[in-house]
Design a binder for these strands. Sequence first.
DNA 1: TATTGTTATACTCTATAACTATA
DNA 2: TATAGTTATAGAGTATAACAATA
Lengths: 144, 144
Amino acid sequence: MVDESEELARLASDLRVAAFRLTRRLRIESHIDEVTDSQLTVLLWLSRLERAAPGALAELERVSPPSMNRTLNVLETAGYVRRIDDPEDGRRVIVEITERGAELASTARRRRNAWLKAELGPLPAADRRTLARAAELLDGMTLR
Amino acid sequence: MVDESEELARLASDLRVAAFRLTRRLRIESHIDEVTDSQLTVLLWLSRLERAAPGALAELERVSPPSMNRTLNVLETAGYVRRIDDPEDGRRVIVEITERGAELASTARRRRNAWLKAELGPLPAADRRTLARAAELLDGMTLR
DNA sequence: TATTGTTATACTCTATAACTATA
DNA sequence: TATAGTTATAGAGTATAACAATA
C-alpha cells in the first residue's frame, strides 16, 4: 500500500516549484523596458476590456484604489491610457487604452507566447495533451 | 488537418494563465504578516541553502545587488538573517538564516503545501498523475 | 449617508552610479 | 585592476487615512 499522504505532499511541492519557475521565466521573457510589470498588467487588462473604471482595475489586480490610481497616473502621463469623465455619473471615471498602449500590450502578449510556443512545439503530442489537461485542472483549483 | 500553430498558441496561453493564477493563489495562501513577499522569498531560499552570499541571492532573484542588500538589511534588523564576514576572503559576506527566520520560512511552506494538498486530495488518481507529469515537463522546459 | 475617485503620507522595492575594502 | 559589498539617490508600487464631489 502506498503512503498517499506522502505522495500528495511530493506532488504539491513539485507543482508549486514548477509553477513558480514557469511564471518567473515568463516574466523575464515578456519583459518590456517601456513599462513596469504592474503597468503592463493593467495595459493587458485594458486591451481585453477596452475600458474600465479605476476601481474595477484595482479589484482585478487586488490592489488598493490609491495604488491603482498612481499606476494609472504614470500610464496616462506616458500616453498609454486616457481618463474620461463618465457622462452618466459624475463620480465615475472611465479608463481607456490608447493606440500606443494597445500596441505595447500586443507586443508583450506576443513575446510571452513566443517563448512558450517554442518550448511546447517540439514536445510529443501526448505531452502537449498532458499539459493542456493540467492547465484545465489547475484552473479548476484556483477558480473555486 | 488541425491548425497546429493555433493549437499551440492556445495551449501556451492556457498554461501561462494557469501558472500565473496558481502562483498568485499560493502567495495569498502563504501570506505572512511579519514579512513582505520579497523578504519571504529570500528566507525560503536561505532555508534551503543554509547560507549564501548577497550577490548569489541577488542573482537567484534576478534583482540588483543594492536591491538585495536593502532587503537583507530589513531581514537582519528584524532578526531573521545574520551577516557573517567570510574568514577566507575579506571582501565576502555570508548570509545565514536564523532560527526565527527558519521558523517563518517553514510556516510559509507548510501553508502553501496545506492548501495545495487540500485541493489535490479529492482529485482522481489519474488527474494527479497528469499533474505530476506536467510538473516534470514544466521543469524540463524551465531548467533548460 | 453611501459611493467613487483622488490626495496626503509613509514605507518597501527597484535601479544606476559612486564609493569602500580587499584580493 | 578587478571583485564583493555597500551607500547615495531617485522613481515606482504598496497601503491606510483623509478629503472631495456626486448620487
